[in-house]
């Protein structure tokens, strides 16, 4: 997510936070995909920037994330609960890489 100047918005960007008027009324709701009309409306109002979702790209590879996880859990794996928690984290990392279609993740095609 990032704060984006209204001047630089392009249609298709998605708001990650609602835009409000000064009186607190919701102008454009959270999650709205911006159209040309929305952007023009924002430009005519006195709004400088809005929060938009940027494509989420993990800044670390799967292998780096797993290595860091190993290190963090190093002192607590005597506990069966922590083994289970770690396994859940590993699966969660694997799934997030698969869903994002990250080139680093294992994919069949």
């Amino acid at each position: 997510m990032a704060r984006f100047p209204v001047a630089d918005l392009t249609p298709g960007m998605r708001l990650s936070r609602a835009v409000h008027t000064d009186s607190g009324m919701v102008l454009i709701g959270e999650g709205t995909e911006l159209t040309e009309a929305h952007i023009n409306r924002l430009r005519t109002m006195d709004i400088e920037s809005v929060q938009v979702e940027l494509e989420r790209r993990p800044d670390k590879t799967r292998e780096e994330m797993l290595a860091e996880l190993d290190e963090r859990f190093r002192k607590s794996l005597d506990s069966v609960y922590m083994k289970r928690l770690k396994k859940i984290f590993v699966e969660h990392i694997d799934e997030s890489f698969n869903n994002n279609g990250n080139p680093g993740a294992a994919q069949s095609d």
């Binding site: 996880l69 290190e71 963090r72 859990f73 190093r74 002192k75 607590s76 506990s79 922590m82 928690l85």
Partner: peptide
């Protein structure tokens, strides 16, 4: 506290995730 350390978000004074209390789990 344990989950957010395991997630590697922020810093709480050490680099390791402490074990969860079995009773709490």
């Amino acid at each position: 506290d344990i989950i957010i350390r395991a997630r590697g978000f922020g810093f709480a004074g050490d680099r390791f995730v402490p074990p969860v209390q079995p009773a709490a789990w």
